[in-house]
Write a protein that binds this DNA or RNA. Structure first.
Lengths: 210, 210
DNA sequence: CATATGAGTGAACACCGTTCTCTCAACGGA
DNA sequence: TCCGTTGAGAGAACGGTGTTCACTCATATG
């Protein structure tokens, strides 16, 4: 028995799938609500029966991108050794295969768009993978340690590992951002070699967990 | 004697200034050619007497942003000690004061926009500052060294310094990108403490040039 | 069976980038 | 000095966008 509610859910799903296609093909800024409606076989105004606005559509896609990345990291790490190198390379692999989704997450926020609460928890799932594969010793400066004490406890790690993980993850995201943005053209493009060198240095500072 | 050519140049300058204002206030994605025309006291179609398209307008703004950043770095480094820390902190200072311009350079490329040749040379000027303040010793892996040999020679530096500078700069850009994107909310936001720790570590690996 | 609900429609609004034709003031040459 | 050329700007129009609103009408429910 297909109820009306089921039909509505199906349409909503079709909308999100169509939007996902557009993003994958052309990137987020080119995403048009009317184009999505067209692909879903619906008139533009009908989209508003399922989504409050274009912003909510984008929010859903951001969440989907986070989930996709987190799952890729989790399964890759689970399938091989839980090392920093494995996680880092999985990040690069996913990014190169999902350029537009990477930029949707880590690139410039869309015009009027402001990330809602939900996306923060989704982002935490990505960070969690890296936190688990790379404990590090030593101690950050007092001010930073103070700031990170509570977050570290909440994430089940220590301030040193948290600080280093955030720092190293920033470097990985920065490398990918600059590579995708064409900033290495003329120097380290393609950036695989630079990536490998950076990841090797990051891994060397961690306990060999394999 | 104000010739017609002078008047044209003045109008073009007014257009670019208006566009700069919009970017500063609302960011690049919100930049509308019609709004720029309005602020310049001109009808939209007249803009095309001065610019080929919205893309060229954006290209001009990208170049202006690179120039602004490069000049800030150069004057700051020249005014105080030419150390890595000075350059890095100048980068952060400029970024926090010019958020939208930073994202224009390092964020997601605008929809159909593709960076032309000119921007690459403008970007090199920024990198040059960092290359000059932080020589580093050691040697990168063979493959990377091979790839960077020619670019390094062209930039008047060695492969080791180039590799490390690109890697460290990526980390700085990554930190700023994540901070501006709200990715540190709940952990290291505001990110000044994390920034200081990262820069200190980067500086420690360089020859004390002060 | 009557009624209320709500997914989908189509027209409209104000915005966008871009193209076209037109005007008309300023310029250079005769 | 006149006169033809040039080119900056105007204005209308095209097809695109996000969003709102009154409407239909099949479905689910009392």
């Amino acid at each position: 028995m297909t109820s009306r509610a089921d039909a509505k859910d199906a349409t909503r799903r079709r909308l999100l799938e169509a939007a996902g296609e557009v993003i994958r093909e052309q990137g987020a800024p080119a995403l048009s609500l009317r184009e999505v409606a067209r692909r879903a076989g619906i008139v533009p105004s009908a989209v508003y029966r399922h989504l409050a606005s274009r912003d909510e559509l984008i929010t859903q896609l951001v969440l989907a991108a986070y989930t996709s990345l987190a799952e890729h990291l989790e399964t890759t790490v689970a399938a091989s050794s839980p090392s920093w190198r494995t996680a880092a390379d999985a990040l690069r692999e996913w990014t190169l295969a999902h350029v537009h989704e990477f930029q949707l997450i880590y690139g410039t926020p869309v015009p009027g768009y402001r990330a809602p609460e939900e996306t923060i928890t989704a982002a935490a799932r990505v960070a969690a993978v890296f936190l688990q594969v790379g404990a590090v010793s030593g101690a950050p400066p007092d001010a930073l340690a103070e700031q990170l004490r509570e977050p570290a406890a909440q994430l089940g790690t220590d301030v040193t590992t948290l600080a280093r993980t955030l720092a190293d993850l920033s470097q990985l995201v920065g490398l990918l951002t600059l590579e995708l943005g064409g900033h290495f053209v003329g120097t380290a493009d393609p950036a695989q070699g630079l990536w490998d060198e950076v990841v090797a240095r990051q891994a060397a500072e961690r306990a060999p967990s394999r």
